[in-house]
Every structure is written in structure tokens, then in C-alpha cells.
């Protein structure tokens, strides 16, 4: 095997698991090659098994749609030992119970002032703005991964008709609580940040109160349902109605 690019394949019951070198002290566990809600049961199971197996030798474990990045402490084990431990841990892996994920109800004020791409996404989908809002709310989205920003959940899959590519030029400032669509994914910006997603509305639900909870609202495998509320309801909840200033 050539250094650094070895790939190990181990047999699990129904999936082929590949382990690849990612960095000096990190290995990438690759479970799938496509995005699918059914993947989550396996990703969650692998996440739990690896956390358990590595224990204090685990520095970070970052699951995503199809992979898990295992960052281990190379003062406690070497490359070959880490590879062996992953192999051993994941052979005979069984999918987790995905029903265990939480269902989150997210009230959203859909309005052009805070969701400037409402008309654009509606037009592309051949829908009225009201129909678009109904469609966006009419689905329990799966949280595939957390990343980009603390508590930012990548959710999907959005109905094919609503799929809209990212803005050509990202906004420098997207308000906290902005709900957006990019291709077949939807997400909420936890804090004011730059971003290129098509923004449809705003929620006042805090996504990551690290001081209060220590962890974000969403976990991979959770389900999210958006619910349209009026400006009055949004304001009564303490929502910030300041319009999105910057236009793409």
C-alpha cells in the first residue's frame, strides 16, 4: 500500500464501508456515495459505535451525509491502530433506530422583507408565493448534518420543484434566523453570517444557545417541520422584523 492513500474495505451487513486517510491523525469513514434519508440510520449508528470504541482517544468525530471524519489522539494510538479499531468497531454494524430523532416545530414568518427570494423561488417553481410557503411547510425535513456554523443544520430533501441554486454572489450579511433553500436543501442561519442561500423567511427559534444548553437544537437524524406564522405572531414572540438590507 502506498502511504497516505490506502483504502480499507470491510464487510458490514448491507453496506460497504471504506476507510481513507484524511490527515496525519484523521481517518474518513465513507459509508455511501449519494445523499439519502435512509443513510442516517447507518451514520448515527457508526457515530455512536465509534465514540464508544475510541473513548478518550477521540479528539473529534464529525458525521456528515455519507461520511464520518474520525480525529484521534495520535499520542494514544498510531495510524494502523486507529485503522484497525475502526475496522473492528464497524464490522457487523446495524442501523440505528431513526425514530429516536426529535421532531421540531419551527414557526417562520415568510415575507419578502425578511425573505427576499420568496418571489424568485416561487416563480421558478411555477407557484404563487402562498403555494410555495405551503409546499415548504408541507414536509418533515431530515437533519443530515451540522456544519458551516454552530448549530447550522443541513436539511432536506426539498421538493424537486422548489430546488434553487445558490445566489451567484453570496450576501455579506444574512440575518440570524433566516430560513433558506439551496438546491434541494433547506436550513436556518443560527447567527448573522455571510451566505448564498435563497432566503424565504425568518424564525425566532434559537438554534444554539451554548451558554444555556451547551448543545444545538438540532441533531443529525432529527426531523424539522416549518409552520407559517403572521407578522403579529412573529413580533409577539420577540422576532426581529428588520428587513434584509442587502439585495443580491
Amino acid at each position: 500500500m502506498k502511504p497516505g492513500i490506502e483504502t480499507t474495505q470491510i464487510e458490514a451487513i448491507r453496506i460497504k464501508i471504506r476507510i481513507e486517510t484524511a490527515a496525519m491523525d484523521a481517518l474518513m469513514v465513507r459509508l455511501f456515495d449519494t445523499i439519502d434519508e435512509a443513510n442516517m440510520a447507518w451514520v448515527i449508528a457508526a457515530d455512536q459505535a465509534l465514540r464508544c470504541a475510541f473513548g478518550a482517544a477521540l479528539i473529534d468525530l464529525v458525521p456528515s451525509y455519507t461520511t464520518l471524519l474520525v480525529h484521534y489522539d495520535c499520542q494514544q494510538m498510531n495510524h494502523a491502530e486507529a485503522l484497525g479499531l475502526i475496522n473492528k468497531t464497524l464490522s457487523g454494524l446495524e442501523p440505528a433506530d431513526t425514530q429516536a430523532g426529535e421532531l421540531h416545530d419551527i414557526p417562520v414568518w415568510y415575507d419578502e422583507s425578511v425573505g427576499p427570494e420568496l418571489p424568485l423561488v416561487a416563480k421558478r417553481a411555477g407557484l404563487s408565493v402562498d403555494e410555495l410557503i405551503q409546499q415548504h411547510c408541507n414536509h418533515d425535513y431530515c437533519v443530515f448534518a451540522l456544519g458551516f456554523a454552530p448549530g447550522y443544520g443541513f436539511m432536506g430533501l426539498v421538493d424537486e420543484a422548489l430546488a434553487t441554486p445558490r445566489l451567484k454572489t453570496p450576501r455579506r450579511k444574512v440575518a440570524a434566523g433566516s430560513v433558506g433553500i439551496a438546491d434541494r436543501q433547506t436550513a436556518i442561519y443560527p447567527l448573522l453570517s455571510p451566505g448564498g442561500w435563497n432566503i424565504l423567511g425568518r424564525t425566532n427559534v434559537p438554534l444554539f444557545e451554548y451558554a444555556k444548553r451547551g448543545e444545538p437544537l438540532f441533531r443529525p437524524g432529527d426531523k424539522v417541520r416549518f409552520r407559517a406564522i403572521s407578522r403579529e405572531e412573529f413580533e409577539a414572540d420577540g422576532g426581529d422584523t428588520t428587513p434584509m438590507e442587502e439585495r443580491p
Partner: peptide, 10 residues
């Protein structure tokens, strides 16, 4: 690629 974890120095 489908988004995946990024190690230091990637």
C-alpha cells in the same frame, strides 16, 4: 463532493 468533515490543514 458531498460535504464531509474537514481536518486541520486540508
Amino acid at each position: 463532493i458531498i460535504s464531509e468533515g474537514i481536518p486541520l490543514g486540508a
